[in-house]
Every structure is written in structure tokens, then in C-alpha cells.
Computed example of a mutant assay.
Amino acid sequence: MKIKSIAILAITLLIISCSTTISTTNKEYKITKASQFKSHCNLNEWFLEKDTLIGHGVPMHWGVMESKKRLPKNYEIVFKVNMTEGSLFEVMLNIDKEKYIRTYLYQIDQNIVIGDGIYFKNDNSYGKRGGKTLFRKPMELENNKWYSVKIKVLNNQLFFTVDDKTLECSLEKSSLNQKGKLGFITNGEVKITDLKIKHHSKLN
């Protein structure tokens, strides 16, 4: 029985390490150990403290984290976020060839936003990170408050929900990336807990 359990664990780890997408055998990825998370992501200005992912940035140098593997074609990302400092927290979706989808919370404008973004890894200059707004919805946002975030991509339709506010758009109609990696950006300090990435395999 013990040998069988070890064999199952070995196969599971092999599937995770060889897969080109962020997924596991049970189609759901969670933060567990710091060492495992580091093997999946380029953390840069981010680190894992117990079960909390923490990012640090400043207005002139955003704190960026990027996954090493691609997101599945259809996926769901859920987590809780607290912007303890700064005005911007952004989830980078489908990062590919310096382009990505912007889904973010922006305190200055008091909006949640979907946008068309660009990201040059080694360039913090104006116009090399961020991008234009496509859709927005007013929402009261403040520091030191926890928000529940749910992002779902199903058949090229994007749903971005923060608490009870939802934005929706078609990736194809908005000419947005339909594949790529995951990332996070902050211009202050952000804390993330209960992060789960679910792979909707039956829709692929």
C-alpha cells in the first residue's frame, strides 16, 4: 500500500512538472509550499509567507510576478486580495509576446477594469507597462480591505468579478490574447490568500 501511494505521488509530480499549463491531475492548482510555488513562477518582487502571497512595488517600479507555465484555454482563478499600500493591483492574463489582458483594481479612478496591456520585462519606462482601458465599472476601493476576486475564461468569454461587481467581454471581439501565462502587478503592497486556479478541461 505504501509503495502504491509513493508511485501515485511520483506520477502526479511528473504530470505537474511536464505539463505546459498551470494544472494538476485534479484540474485545480493551489498555493501549498513556497518551494513548489517558486518552481512554477518567477516571483521577482513577490514572496510567499505561509499561505499568503505578498507583492511589493512602487509607482516607478511595479512589483511583478509571472508564471513559468501557460494558463489552460478555459480556466477559473479565485482568490482574496488586500491592497495594503498603493493604488493599483493587476492580474495579468494570457501574457504572450509582451501583450496581456489587464484585469485590475484601481483606487485612483475607483474602478475595476478590463484592458489591453503591454509588458516589457526589463523596461519600467512610460508606455512599456500597462495599457488602454476597454471596460470599466465603478467600485469603492480602499487600502487594508479584503476583496473576493473571481476571473473566469470560458470559450473566449472573460468574466471579471470583484465582490458583487462583474465585467464581461469577448476576447475575440476585443482582439485580446487567447492564450498565455499568468502574472500579478502592484505599485504598492498587496496580499493574496486562498489562490486557486481551476482548469475547465471539459471545455477545452
Rank of each mutant, 00 (worst) to 15 (best):
G63R: 01
K50N: 15
G127L: 10
G86D: 04
G86E: 05
I95Y: 12
V113S: 03
D194G: 02
M65S: 12
K150N: 07
M83G: 02
V78E: 10
R70H: 09
I8T: 14
L134K: 01
K73T: 11
M60S: 13
F184H: 04
S17R: 15
S23T: 05
P59M: 04
V81R: 01
H56K: 05
T32V: 04
T21C: 12
V190S: 13
G63C: 01
K128E: 04
A34K: 14
E98M: 05
I15W: 11
L53H: 04
K181I: 04
D109Y: 04
H56N: 14
H200D: 00
K179F: 00
N94K: 05
M92P: 08
L158T: 09
E45I: 08
I185P: 02
I118E: 11
Q178I: 07
I54C: 13
K73I: 00
W146F: 15
K132I: 10
K150H: 11
R102I: 03
K27P: 00
L14N: 13
Y119K: 08
S201Y: 09
Y126T: 12
F160W: 14
L71V: 01
T12D: 15
Y106D: 10
E45Y: 13
F160K: 05
H61V: 11
V153R: 04
E85Q: 15
S87M: 09
V113G: 06
T166K: 14
S5Q: 11
I118V: 15
H199F: 11
L53R: 10
G57F: 06
D109P: 03
C41M: 14
G57H: 05
L171T: 09
E140K: 15
H61L: 11
I192F: 13
F79H: 02
I3T: 12
T32P: 08
L13I: 09
A34E: 11
M1S: 14
I151L: 09
I95F: 12
M139D: 06
L9D: 01
L105P: 04
I3G: 02
I118Q: 14
S35V: 08
G183T: 07
L105A: 07
S35Q: 08
E90T: 08
Y106R: 07
F79Y: 10
S35M: 07
H61E: 13
M65Q: 04
K145T: 05
D194F: 08
A7L: 15
L9I: 13
G183V: 13
T133I: 07
I16A: 06
D116F: 04
F159A: 01
K150F: 06
I192A: 00
G130A: 12
R102T: 07
I151E: 01
K128F: 14
K50R: 15
I11G: 01
Y104D: 08
R102Y: 03
F159C: 01
K69V: 00
V162G: 03
E45M: 14
I114W: 00
N177Y: 02
K173N: 15
Q178S: 08
K165L: 12
K2V: 10
S170E: 02
V153I: 00
N177F: 03
K99F: 10
K152I: 05
F184P: 02
Y106I: 03
N124D: 14
L134C: 11
E76T: 06
L182H: 02
K38T: 03
I15V: 15
L14H: 14
L182D: 01
V58F: 06
F184I: 10
E98S: 12
K191G: 00
S125Y: 08
K27V: 02
L88H: 11
R129N: 10
K99C: 10
E76I: 15
D164L: 12
L88D: 06
V153Y: 00
